[in-house]
Each structure stands twice: as C-alpha cells, then as structure tokens.
Design a protein around this nucleic acid. Structure first.
Lengths: 237, 237
DNA sequence: GCTTGTCCTGCGGGAACCCGCAGATCGCTG
DNA sequence: CAGCGATCTGCGGGTTCCCGCAGGACAAGC
C-alpha cells in the first residue's frame, strides 16, 4: 500500500507523513509532492490509489489536481485536508467527485486522533468522512437556508468573471431576460439591494454581489481562476 | 525581553516558538496567541515590544491586529511571517506601518537560518528586513511597471466593494467624470478592454476589473473586508 | 512668455444594466 | 381536466456605465 501526500507547506507535509505512518502501519511507502502540478505527475507515475492533499496550494489548486487525478483513475481514494471550510471549496470538491468515489474532507484544526481515524476510514474501509463543520456548509448549500442553488451559483461565477448579461445568455443558451431574472434571485439571496434611501451610498448591484459573495466565502479567488480557465477552454473550442 | 507570537496554525506556532528560542537566547518569555483578536488583547496586556505574527488568520486579520497594536504602541517591533507575497498583503502592511517603525516581512518558505537572522535583525538591531520576493512586489507597485498607483488602488477597492461611480465621487469629494477617468486608467493598467471583436465574449469592464485584480492577487477577500469595515465606520460618523 | 504635460471637470450619446408587467410553457396535484 | 406554481421569454422605461471631445487649472521646462 502506497500513499501520496500533496501539500506545499513543509511543516504540514512532515506532520502528515508522520500521521500516515502511525495511522497506517500496513503502508509500506509514503511519497510527497510539494504542489498540485507535481502531485498530478507523481500520482500518474506512481499509479497512486491513496492520496491525501491540501486544497489551497500556490502552483496548482488542490481541486484542479484532484480533478485530473480522478479523471485518470476514478477509484482513487482522496482525503482532503484543508484549513478552511469555505463554501467555495466545499462546493468545488463536491462538484468534481466522480460517482461512487470515496473521499474525505477534514479540517487542519481537527485533532490527531480524528485525522488518523479519517485516514483509516477512507483508505481501508472506503468510507466517506466529512468533518462536521464542512457537512454544515454542504447542508446550507442544499437546504432552504440562504444558500445558493446551483443555477444561482453558476450565474454568480459568470458575473464574477466579468461577463456581460448578453454573453452569459449566449454561453448558457438562455434568453437575456432569463439571465437577468436569475441575477435578481441572486441579489435577493445575497441580500443586495439598492439602499433605497438618498443619493448617498448606493450600490452597483452586480459588483456588490461579488463583494458580498467574497466576504461570505461563497466565492474565492481560486474558484474564479478555475472558471476563467474553463472559459478559455470553451473559447478555444 | 518578551516575545509575543500570533499565529493560528498550531504547527507553525510551535515551530515559531522553537525558532525564537534558539535565535534569541536573551529572550526570557515567549507568549502565544492563536488569532488576531486574542493577539491584540495579549499585546495590550503584556505591553509587548516584540511581536511575530502571521497575516492570514481566520478570526481577525494580521493586518488589522498590527494596526491596532501599532496604534497603541507605535514603537512595537513586528515581524510578519506569511505564506504569500500577494500585492494586497504587501500593500496592506506598508499602508499601516507608522513612520519610523521597524518591521520585517519574511515568507514561510524561507529557510530556518533566514528566519532566525530576521528575528535578530528586526528585534535587536531595529533593522527592517523584507524578503527579496516581497521587495519585488513592493517595487512593482511603485515602479513604472503595470503596477497600480495609489489613486488607482483606492478606486479599485471602492469598485470592488460594489459602490456606484456617483457614490465614490461624493465619498472621495471628486467629480463624477474624474472617477470615471480613474476607472479608465485602472482598466488600462489591468489590461481590461471590450474585446472589441464580435458580439460574443464581451466583458463588463467594472466586474472584469475586480476579477483580474483577484487573479493577479492585487486584491483579496480580506482587503475587501477591511474596506467594507472602513466604509461602515464612515457611514456611522 | 509659450509650450508641454498632467489632472480635474462638464456634456452628450450609445450601450449595458435593473426591473415591472405580461404572456407562454411545463410539471404537479386535487 | 382545471388550477397552481415555477421557470423562461419579450417589451419598455429609467438609471447607470463607458468613453470621446473639449475646456480650465496648475506645475515644469524651453
């Protein structure tokens, strides 16, 4: 049994190494990659079946790396180990996990015990382990709370990229008015409105929405980057 | 001599503790706070003269914490120890450092030696130590490169907050047209334009600009949050 | 003095936005 | 089937944005 660690912080990497060693004595090789790009290459080269990785990495995002790894071997078991439970990350992960794949999502703030438990559960028993807090974010996304639906999230991303209503409409094969309708749903969900009062302190709803999304951690820079890359790919086709 | 460590990651905190101990044997007490908010309180309580802190923290940003610490004791010596050299952070720091204060900015990726050297230089010899890479970002901001001037940065932040041209004008006591002029400078600097070609893939310049700024790390979520808080304060007055 | 450059300001028009109103489609339920 | 709700679509308007053109204020340099 071989385990691949993808993590760009040296301290965390060695900590993970130690945790894997002690949690999985049946593991006979622990490899390390120090960013997402190298992680993809190493995973391919080693035919890794067991991966534990960070999400926020400089060179190449954990989500992107996981996506290509899963594309090549959908049965790879991946344990995400992240600092944050931002909705953007949680949503990003659940967006790329292939059907039936087993994975885990634990926060770096959890105890040694839980990390080791998660390692064993995910890798040996093919059980999905999601931290309580992360679970909460997931729920909020689906439930009737002020979370965003998929349609709303998609339009949020397009708007955050700086696209025009018309452009979004033609990309999504929708009418212009429909796009604007969804935008208004979005504004409502994000609690963004014209500050009806005087001539002071009005908002540009469109940019205000992305500001609020950023502050609520619904969106983050890497989500925008991923979308940008998808956009470029579309354009090339 | 007492040193206060403000860092929310347990691993990094203990690593820093060790580094301080070995770099500064004359230091007789090392305290730790595990986020920005507690850091402010502890610094006040302990009358800390020497602080080493992270920038990216969950509860309260390193920049905000440093601002209040420096406001209370401008001669505090602070060494920032950060993962990133995002322009948003670098600019944020240099925006709050009081005249004549000594501080340092080193990246977490630098070696033990350099970290210890920085600790001694900043704390004992009152010398400012800025990592080479960070220095590079600073230069780019000032120099004739495609970095942003202060005026452009300010308007970028206001736009990112979602304010209207008119609102910005009245807040900044400028004419509407002037604000729009600056916006156009900004668009040029960020290389944002209408994609003149067809009817496809046009941009909404305003939101496109914040997207590009996010991707170039000129802006980040915490910069937006800080601006938002300032905005609310203004409104209250 | 004149010129040159940089910054601020006003005007005007075309485009994009925000949004209310109304009709059309589709799925669901009694 | 009739009725209801949710979603998509078109139209029209008021507002805001993007930007070219043109003038005025001020400093620096020939």
């Amino acid at each position: 049994m071989k385990v691949l660690i993808i993590e760009d912080d040296a301290l965390h990497r060695s900590y993970l190494h130690e945790a894997v060693r002690s949690a999985l004595p049946e593991c006979d090789a622990v490899m390390e990659s120090e960013n997402g790009r190298l992680g993809e290459i190493d995973a391919r080269k080693l035919r890794a079946e067991f991966v534990v990785m960070d999400l926020q990495m400089n060179d190449r995002n954990g989500i992107e790396a996981a996506r290509t790894i899963w594309r090549e071997r959908p049965d790879t078991k991946i344990l995400f180990w992240s600092n944050y439970s931002d909705e953007a990350y949680v949503r990003g992960v659940s967006r790329i996990v292939p059907g039936g794949a087993t994975y885990g999502y634990v926060l770096k703030s959890t105890s040694d015990e839980r990390l080791k438990l998660a390692l064993r559960s995910v890798f040996l028993e093919s059980q999905c382990v999601i931290d309580r807090e992360v679970r909460g974010i997931q729920q909020k996304g689906m439930g009737a709370g002020h979370g965003l639906s998929d349609a709303e999230y998609e339009i949020l991303v397009d708007v955050a990229l700086g696209l025009t209503d018309k452009t979004i409409a033609s990309r999504k094969k929708l009418s212009l008015r429909t796009v604007q309708n969804r935008l208004q749903q979005l504004y409502e969900k994000l609690d963004v409105y014209q500050e009806a009062g005087d001539d002071e302190s009005r908002y540009n709803l469109r940019t205000r929405a992305v500001a609020v999304a950023l502050m609520r951690r619904v969106l983050n820079a890497s989500a925008v980057e991923r979308a940008e890359r998808d956009l470029q790919d579309d354009a090339d086709c």
